[in-house]
Amino acid sequence: MATSNPAFSQSAAFNATASAQQLEELYNSPSASSAETDRMTVEDTIRKTAASFGILLVGAVVGWWVPGLWIVGAIAGLVLAFVNIFRNRKKLPSAGLTLAYAAAEGLFVGGISKFYEAFAGGVVVQAVLATIVVVGVTLALFATGKIRASARATKVFLAAMIGYLVFSLVNLVLIWTGAVNDPWGLRGSFEIFGIPLGVVIGVLVVIMCAYSLVLDFDMIQQGVKNRAPRAYGWAGAFGIMVTVVWLYLELLRIFAIARN
Rank of each mutant, 00 (worst) to 15 (best):
A2L: 13
S4N: 10
N5E: 13
S9W: 10
Q10H: 11
N15W: 01
S19F: 01
Q21W: 09
Q22F: 06
E24K: 08
E25K: 12
N28Y: 13
P30C: 06
S34V: 12
T41C: 05
V42M: 11
E43H: 07
D44K: 06
K48G: 07
T49F: 11
A50V: 14
A50Y: 01
F53T: 02
L56T: 13
L57Q: 05
V58G: 14
G59H: 08
G63H: 00
W64I: 02
G73A: 13
I85T: 14
R89H: 07
P93Y: 00
G96Y: 07
L97T: 11
T98Q: 11
L99V: 08
E105W: 03
E105Y: 04
L107E: 05
F108G: 00
F108V: 05
F108W: 10
S113Y: 02
A118K: 15
G121Y: 09
V123T: 15
Q126W: 10
A127N: 05
V128E: 06
A130W: 14
A130K: 01
V134N: 04
G136K: 04
G136W: 09
T138L: 04
A140H: 13
F142G: 07
G145F: 00
K146C: 00
K146L: 15
I147H: 07
A149Q: 13
A151I: 13
F157T: 08
L158C: 00
G163E: 13
Y164R: 02
L165E: 06
L165R: 07
S168A: 09
L169K: 09
V173G: 03
T177N: 08
G178R: 07
A179F: 11
P183N: 01
W184H: 12
L186F: 05
R187M: 03
G194A: 06
P196H: 09
V199R: 01
V199D: 06
V200Q: 12
V200S: 03
I201S: 08
I201V: 06
G202K: 04
V203T: 01
L204G: 12
L204E: 03
L204I: 15
V206D: 00
M208R: 04
M208W: 08
A210C: 09
Y211N: 01
V214K: 00
D216K: 04
D218P: 09
M219G: 14
Q222R: 12
K225D: 06
K225L: 12
P229L: 12
P229I: 12
Y232L: 05
Y232P: 08
F238S: 11
I240N: 08
V242W: 14
R259L: 08
N260I: 06
